[in-house]
Design a protein around this nucleic acid. Sequence first.
DNA 1: CTGAAAGCGCTTACAG
DNA 2: CTGAAAGCGCTTACAG
Lengths: 332, 332
Amino acid sequence: MATRLSDVAARAGVSVKTVSNVINDYPHITARTRAKVEAAIAALDYKPNVSARSLRKGRSDFIALAIPEMGSPYFAELGAAISRAAKRRGITVLIDQTEGESAAERFVLDGMRGQLIDGIIFSPLATAPAKLTSADTGKPLVLLGERPAGGQFDRVAVDSVQASYDATTHLISLGRHRIAAIGVGGTGTGAVRRKGYRKALKAAGMAHDPVLELAGTGYHRLDGAASMRELLALPEPPDAVFCFNDLLALGALRTLADAGLRVPDDVAVVGFDDIEDGRYHSPSLTTVSPDKEWLADNAVALLLDRIAGNGGSTHRDLTVPYTLEIRESTGG
Amino acid sequence: MATRLSDVAARAGVSVKTVSNVINDYPHITARTRAKVEAAIAALDYKPNVSARSLRKGRSDFIALAIPEMGSPYFAELGAAISRAAKRRGITVLIDQTEGESAAERFVLDGMRGQLIDGIIFSPLATAPAKLTSADTGKPLVLLGERPAGGQFDRVAVDSVQASYDATTHLISLGRHRIAAIGVGGTGTGAVRRKGYRKALKAAGMAHDPVLELAGTGYHRLDGAASMRELLALPEPPDAVFCFNDLLALGALRTLADAGLRVPDDVAVVGFDDIEDGRYHSPSLTTVSPDKEWLADNAVALLLDRIAGNGGSTHRDLTVPYTLEIRESTGG
DNA sequence: CTGAAAGCGCTTACAG
DNA sequence: CTGAAAGCGCTTACAG
């Protein structure tokens, strides 16, 4: 049998209430009592039973992080940062892979894992965030990433339109004239980043060419490689490509290398996310670099604040700082 | 107040025992009773409280996966696979980043999180596995990766000596004469893979040259790039490099590209792990490819079997199948 | 500060 | 199959 609170109390010669007070850092405990209790805890190697505690308190100090896939570098790096940020606050993160499936996303929102978790940080892919209503989840929820107008949850995200505008403008400033986009489509990331892309073209007096906007089926290297092949098969191939994430860009670079084209001389490439692979690739990848630590820290803080009952009915929206990291793939 | 078991029982007109029986799939329930109960569960949107359940049963159906860092692609891919394998069995995985720190590893082994988890899958870095004793952890534990002789836990790992032997032999078969190794050092991975490397050299009648064995400070791209720079500064640089993981190899490839050297013509490169980055890199990376799905599935199965009380005092040791994937970095 | 006691929501012998 | 009840290990009013 594991040692219990009452064993500690007996050994320290105090009541269970006092032991509980010590563990939970309540005030009004004399240093002498505290020392006695701590000695007993150490002697018995006592560890509180978290199931009992959370059953009683109705709080578990667990939060869920629901992401499409943790094998994907951006989400892996983000998950690592969020785990660290939560741990600093005494919170444990359960990571759930939805694999972009509606059913799995629904499951998470359904208050997954019974009543175990206190709240959810949710990076949606299949579920259009606009369709979420607070009835879908009894739990506090913080949304990561794009959200169409009218959302009703707290959110932390980069200004994807502005960042995409900056990325495209960088390509224009290099004197490129046929600038393609890989990763358009859908109502989320693809739509929002295309908006910034088109806006930059328009600002420069350039028309957007639908033939240069590639949708693909996903956001992996495979998709980027395939889209780039399509672009190269065009009568007039592009001289620059803005890929809506780094994985697409790395796939595109692979296709360009296979085709014997020089980067950035023949084709300049920009990505989005700043995953570590891109920094070490040859050529290194120019990319939009969101501050992931900032994102993680603020997403956790926002959720905990909401769990604590703050925030009321306002839907807070935090904008993640970013920089455009200019590297070899655009001549940097 | 959330709906409870007793609410469901009241609505279905049965006892709580019967509801519990339905939920836990006990036999001897008529189809009619089951249907009544399930209708009530659906109508009330009832979800069992896992804290209460695990408090009562003494089992949580949670296991911990302790890895050095989830931002690292190999561990991210492994974590994803283990999460999936566990979910198939109704088990939830808590992922813990130890960041290779002794204290954090110790914390995990200490039966982390109170009595929440039922067992641990542990990929050690700082803690020499040989030093572990079963007294360190009250929980069933499965070790991942290298283990010096004398370990006393169940383990799942590739035969690193043999795999390193194969990788090095492949380089020898290409006619290379100065074959370097990056990632030697320590008592774990570095030591074991060096053993296979030296063994292959010896089998081919070649002497190993200490000057060609680079230790570095870690297993990241940064370390691989730095080690490769050291090798290129040698009076007689190598014509082939066996890197003890893919990240090191990708860093080395970056240095080679910067130096204007051709791969594999000037220097052939082999990695270990088969992470996705290597497959898409230019040149694509020849590497030892462990079957990660097999590893994940068997690690989870082994742990659950141990949790169920099986296995006795035998220390089971499972060997993960692998292949050598020959790609462009060695001319494949 | 202490002590005795209730109760969080389950599962599980127990008697029928 | 059912029903009444105990108990998992905590936290928290409550009375002192």
